[in-house]
Amino acid sequence: MKNEWPLWEVFIRGQHGLSHRHVGSLHAPDAEMAIKNARDVYTRRNEGVSIWVVEANNITASSPSNKGPLYEPAESKVYRHPTFFDIPDEVGAM
């Protein structure tokens, strides 16, 4: 069991210029093989034009139990959203 290949997280940029998106994970002995495996596993249906891989244990995640303190304060700052402001129709697109 100690000889299990490390787990890698795979990010792929699709055809349409969007940012790399997390698509899933896989196992590989090293980063180069992870890229090759990602190509075989996650782009079988023309899904992408660019691949990133990162070893899963290098990812630091926010804690789910911290959800309240982390994100709720933003809820009260409604003025950050463009819809907060009324712009008269005569002004046109803004």
């Binding site: 069991m1 299990e4 787990l7 899933g24 994970s25 896989l26 196992h27 596993v41 079988r44």
Partner: peptide, 23 residues
Amino acid sequence: QDEAGHGLYLYCAAETLGVSRDE
């Protein structure tokens, strides 16, 4: 081949629960 892929996706989902694919 897709079925192998499905197995792979699902093992990875299980791995987020702290159990390895080899296990």
